[in-house]
Computed example of a mutant assay.
Amino acid sequence: MITGFALVCLNVGDLDEAKRFYVDVLGFEVGIDREMDGFRWLTVHVPGRPELPMMLVVPEPPVVEEPIAGQLHSLMARGYLGLGALSTDDCRATCAELKARGVEITEEPEERFYGIDAAFRDPFGNHWRLTQPKTLDDIRDGAT
C-alpha cells in the first residue's frame, strides 16, 4: 500500500541558483546538500516539514543524456514542467511578499472553487501554483 510521497524531484538549471531561490527567496530549508558518487544531492523542504522533501536536479549528462537533456531544459524554460501547487494560509499576502522579493507572479490571486489561487515562476521557468485551499468539505459542499 502506498502511504505518501517520499521525494519529489524538480528539474532546475543550476543547483546553486536553485538553492538561493528556494531557500533565500521562498523560505524553504535545506534537507540534504552533499556530493555522493560524483552527484550532488540537494533537497529542500518547507519549514518544519522535512518528511516532504523536494530534490533539485539539473537534467544533464550523465544523469540525462542528450538530446533529452536539452529538450527538458527547453520545456522547463517554457513553464511546462511545473510540479503543481504550493499551499499558503494567505495567498494574497504571500504573493505580495514574493513580489517584493523579485518573484515573477504570472497570475494574480483569484477566487476559485478550491480556494484562492495564483501562479509564479522560478528562475528556470518552472510554473508553480500558489494556493490558499478550502477544506475538502467546503469544496464538496460547493461553498464559496
Rank of each mutant, 00 (worst) to 15 (best):
F113E: 15
K19G: 02
S87H: 10
F113A: 11
F21M: 02
R20V: 07
V58K: 13
M54G: 04
T131V: 15
F28T: 06
T144Q: 12
V25M: 05
L42M: 01
G27H: 07
P109K: 02
E35D: 10
E66D: 08
P123C: 09
G13R: 10
D90F: 02
R49K: 15
L15S: 11
I32L: 08
L10A: 14
N11T: 06
A77P: 12
R112S: 14
E108P: 02
I139A: 06
D14I: 00
A6D: 15
G79H: 09
G27E: 06
Y80H: 15
W128S: 03
E107W: 03
A85M: 14
K134T: 02
G115D: 11
F113K: 09
H45E: 05
V8H: 06
V23Y: 02
D138T: 02
Y22F: 11
M76Q: 15
A6I: 08
L56Q: 13
L72P: 04
L15C: 10
K134E: 07
L81Y: 12
R112W: 03
K19Q: 15
R101K: 15
A18F: 00
R20N: 09
P50H: 04
D37K: 01
V12D: 09
I68C: 05
V103K: 03
P123I: 08
G4R: 13
G84P: 10
P50N: 01
G4C: 12
L42I: 04
L7W: 11
G82H: 14
C91M: 02
A85L: 11
F113T: 08
K134M: 03
E111M: 03
L42A: 10
M76D: 07
R20F: 10
F21V: 04
T88N: 08
V46L: 11
V8L: 14
V58Y: 13
N126Y: 03
G31Q: 07
G82L: 12
Y22G: 01
G4L: 09
R112Q: 14
R92L: 04
D89T: 06
F124N: 09
E35L: 00
W128H: 12
F39I: 08
F21S: 05
V103S: 08
E66C: 06
A85N: 14
T94C: 00
R40D: 04
L42V: 01
N126R: 01
R121G: 09
G27D: 08
L98E: 06
P59R: 09
R129Q: 15
W128L: 13
V46A: 14
V57F: 14
T135P: 03
T94G: 00
A69W: 08
D122I: 01
E97A: 12
D141L: 10
D90L: 01
D89Y: 00
V30L: 06
M1T: 15
H45S: 05
G27S: 09
R121V: 15
F28H: 07
T88Y: 10
H45A: 07
C95F: 07
A143M: 06
R140V: 15
Y80N: 15
E51T: 08
V44A: 03
L26G: 06
D141F: 00
V8W: 03
E60L: 08
V63L: 15
G38C: 07
H73P: 03
G38Q: 00
W128G: 04
P109T: 00
L81K: 11
V23C: 12
V44M: 03
D33S: 12
G48W: 05
L42F: 05
F124R: 04
A6T: 13
V30R: 06
I68A: 10
L86V: 14
G79S: 12
